[in-house]
C-alpha cells in the first residue's frame, strides 16, 4: 500500500506537504464557516427552543414546522436549493454565505430541540413560581429557567457543534474552498487521493475530537448532579456525600 505505486506512496505525501498552504487555507475557511454557522444556529436554536415552550400557539407552530422541515430533509438538498434554486428568484449568494446560512439554519433546528428538551427538564413549578412573582415569560426564561437548563443543554449542544463542523464538508459539492473541497480538487488534479483524504479527515478530527471530549466531560458532570437538578444521582447518594463531608 505504501509502495511506490500504492495509494499512499511516499512521493504523494511529499507532494501534499509541499502544498500544505492550500490545505491550511481550506482548514481556515472551514473554521470561518463553522464558527459563523454555529453563531447563527445558536441564535435560531435558542429563540425557537424558547418559542416552542411558550404556550403561544403561532410561535409553537412556527417552531415545530421549522424543526420538522430542516430535520427531515437532507442538508445536501437544502444547500443545492440555496445554490441552484435561489438564483431563479434573483437571489445570488456567495458560496460562503450559502455555507453559513445553510449549515446554520439546518443545525438551528437541532439546537432548538436541544433547548426545548432542556427547558422541559426543569420542573414546572419553577415557571409557576416565577409567574407568581410577576415575571413575564421571557424574564422567567432568562433569569430562572435557562440558567438552570444550561448544564443540561450544554453536552448535547457541544455534540451539535461537532456535527456542524463535520457537515460544513457538504460545501465541497458547491466548490466551497473548505477542507473537503480542497482535498477533492487537489487530489483530482494529481490523483493522489490517499493522502489527501487522510489529511482532510485528520483536520476534521483535530477540530471535533476535543469538542466531543468536552461534551463527554460536561455530561459526566450533569450525571453527577442530584436527580432534581436533571442528573442521575439519587437523593440518597447526595445525602451520603454531605454526611461524608461534614
Amino acid at each position: 500500500m505504501f509502495s511506490s505505486t500504492g495509494p499512499f506512496a511516499w512521493f504523494k505525501w511529499q507532494a501534499l506537504f509541499a502544498d500544505w498552504q492550500i490545505f491550511a487555507q481550506g482548514f481556515a475557511y472551514t473554521l470561518v464557516v463553522a464558527f459563523s454557522a454555529l453563531a447563527l444556529a445558536l441564535l435560531i436554536g435558542i429563540i425557537l427552543g424558547i418559542a416552542s415552550c411558550s404556550n403561544i400557539k403561532p410561535l409553537e407552530l412556527f417552531s415545530r414546522i421549522y424543526v420538522e422541515f430542516f430535520q427531515n430533509t437532507p442538508l445536501l438538498i437544502q444547500i443545492f436549493f440555496l445554490y441552484n434554486g435561489l438564483p431563479y428568484a434573483g437571489i445570488v449568494l456567495s458560496v460562503t454565505t450559502i455555507g453559513i446560512i445553510g449549515v446554520g439554519m439546518y443545525h438551528g433546528a437541532y439546537i432548538a430541540e436541544v433547548v426545548r428538551s432542556g427547558i422541559g427538564s426543569i420542573a414546572k413549578g419553577q415557571l409557576e413560581a416565577a409567574y407568581s412573582q410577576g415575571f413575564t415569560y421571557w424574564q422567567a426564561m432568562t433569569h430562572i429557567i435557562l440558567p438552570q437548563a444550561k448544564t443540561i443543554i450544554l453536552p448535547p449542544l457541544t455534540m451539535q457543534a461537532v456535527n456542524l463542523i463535520k457537515n460544513t464538508s457538504v460545501l465541497a459539492v458547491i466548490s466551497g474552498a473548505d477542507i473537503m473541497f480542497t482535498a477533492k480538487s487537489w487530489s483530482s488534479s494529481n490523483i493522489y487521493y490517499g493522502p489527501a483524504y487522510v489529511v482532510a479527515g485528520l483536520l476534521y478530527f483535530i477540530l471535533c475530537y476535543p469538542l466531543a471530549n468536552l461534551a463527554k466531560r460536561l455530561e459526566d458532570k450533569v450525571n453527577a448532579l442530584p436527580a432534581e437538578a436533571g442528573g442521575k444521582k439519587s437523593r440518597l447518594a447526595k445525602q451520603d456525600v454531605t454526611v461524608g463531608n461534614s
Binding site: 420542573a123 407568581s132 410577576g134 413575564t136 438552570q148 437538578a229
Partner: peptide
C-alpha cells in the same frame, strides 16, 4: 396579570425556590 401577581404572592406546596 403580571402586575396584579406582584401584589398577590403565592406560597406553593412544593416550595419552588430557585435552586440556582
Amino acid at each position: 396579570v403580571a402586575k396584579v401577581r406582584q401584589s398577590a404572592a403565592m406560597v406553593f406546596q412544593s416550595f419552588n425556590l430557585y435552586p440556582h
